[in-house]
């Protein structure tokens, strides 16, 4: 549905805005490229020349150090020049519109913008208004999409469990506000996963999510029954204020991953989380870095998939540009 803008007429990646509508072959190609780049940068010299001379701007309208850092590391490993800009929402309200911000940055001859913004659709907006040679990489827009997180989750699942076709994956927690959940669901669906579950109290499940291909569970035990992968979502601790939940304690008692619940999972089931974790809320602190947890590996894989996306958008089009 929303894919036409992000592919060029040859079906190559022009922007990355959402997982929604990405062709399966292209998605697989990104994951393969990520694996290849991970391999190529595994030695002492982690730098590749692929994007030498290219300029990448991290344009973050939402505070983020972790995600921004992984984009920065990814760009630098490909030898791109990187500019980090943290723009507070208040400065854009001082008369400068988002479009002004984009045009100003374009004038610095950037090749690619990595954008994070709290409004759903922000990445599409920038892609629609970007100059022809400028690419947009969505690093999270509102509740809509966080495609590189979706990719790194797929990459991590594939590395540990193989192709997702016959896996059962449960996404647990604040699905309502989660762009990660949406990107994961799209990605898993595209790769043929037939058992995608979302597990949360009804206040944290958005209406009609079944139409994206997920089954809804309001209780943790049946939701986790027989799954191969558990993806925990970060719960913003202010959700009690909006009357979504009575307390963090009650959420943890009903939906938190504890040692007892972990013991009931399949012996080879793995646990993931996009970070940063709330210890004692989504997951008992002692489990965060246990051998069943892939949380740190996700961070490392995030660099590889972000390199792959940057390389495919900018590197591949070098000849035709």
């Amino acid at each position: 549905m929303t894919s036409s803008l992000q592919l060029d007429q040859h079906g190559r990646l022009r922007h990355l805005l959402t997982m929604d509508g990405l062709p399966r072959q292209l998605l697989t190609e990104i994951l393969d490229r990520a694996a290849h780049l991970a391999e190529a940068t595994s030695g002492a010299d982690k730098k590749l020349p692929n994007l030498r001379g290219r300029t990448i701007v991290n344009l973050f309208f939402e505070a983020s150090t972790r995600t921004r850092s992984t984009f920065e590391v990814a760009a630098k490993r490909l030898s791109a020049d990187v500019i980090n800009l943290q723009v507070s929402s208040s400065s854009t309200s001082k008369g400068e519109t988002l479009l002004d911000t984009l045009k100003t940055m374009e004038a610095m001859q950037a090749d690619l913008f990595v954008i994070r913004h709290d409004a759903s659709g922000a990445a599409h907006f920038f892609a629609e208004h970007a100059a022809p040679g400028v690419a947009i990489l969505n690093a999270g827009d509102g509740r809509h999409a966080h495609p590189t997180q979706g990719l790194l989750d797929l990459y991590t699942i594939r590395a540990h469990k193989g192709p997702p076709e016959n896996l059962s994956v449960a996404i647990v927690g604040d699905v309502l506000h989660s762009r990660v959940a949406r990107s994961d669901i799209h990605g898993l669906r595209i790769l043929g996963c037939k058992d995608i579950r979302v597990v949360a109290p009804p206040t944290l499940i958005p209406a009609g999510i079944e139409q994206m291909g997920a089954r809804v569970f309001h209780q943790l035990e049946p939701g986790l029954d027989g799954v191969d992968v558990v993806i925990l979502l970060r719960l913003q601790t202010e959700r009690m204020l909006g009357a979504f939940l009575p307390s963090l304690g009650e959420f943890h008692r009903d939906f938190g991953l504890t040692r007892e619940r972990l013991a009931k999972l399949k012996p080879d089931a793995v646990v993931m989380h996009p970070g940063p974790i709330n210890r004692g809320v989504e997951i008992a602190g002692e489990l965060a870095y246990s051998e069943r947890s892939l949380i740190l590996e996700q961070v490392a894989n995030g660099i590889s998939v972000r390199m792959a996306v940057m390389d495919m958008i900018l590197g591949d089009r070098g000849a035709s540009k």
């Binding site: 759903s120 827009d141 009609g208 999510i209």
Partner: peptide, 15 residues
Amino acid sequence: HEGPIATRLGLAPIP
């Protein structure tokens, strides 16, 4: 409108 489109696009729903 609250429903699959708002959910897919991550838009705040009006029930």
